[in-house]
């Protein structure tokens, strides 16, 4: 299903200008054990509904940003820079930018 995605820099553009770059997951600490790194690399939530994900505006400003998108209908999108995530991603464990 096609849709328009709002690049925080360029505004509304067709999704074909962007590449999806994976679910937004929290990166383990350098010293964390191998299992949590394997989990981070391979395991996904793959939610049917709203989730946070990375996008790359390859045919535009070439910047990376985060989006909240509903995977059932592509609606309810909010897009924002990585640095704005503590304000916009409502998770207790979200580290400060």
């Amino acid at each position: 299903m096609s849709f328009m995605l709002r690049c925080p820099n360029c505004g509304d553009r067709h999704v074909a200008e962007f590449s999806f770059r994976g679910e937004y997951l929290q990166r383990p600490q350098q010293e964390d054990e191998f299992a949590s790194w394997a989990d981070y690399v391979y395991m996904k939530e793959n939610v049917q509904g709203k989730h946070f994900e990375w996008w790359y505006h390859g045919s535009g400003c070439q910047r990376w940003f985060l989006a909240e998108r509903d995977t059932t209908d592509n609606t309810t999108q909010t897009t924002f820079w990585f640095d704005d995530r503590p304000r916009l991603i409502n998770r207790e464990s979200e580290p400060d930018a």
Binding site: M1, V15, S19, N46, Q48, E53, T71
Partner: peptide
């Protein structure tokens, strides 16, 4: 496959 995850 389509380029982004989707359940529709």
């Amino acid at each position: 496959i389509d380029g982004y995850p989707h359940y529709g």
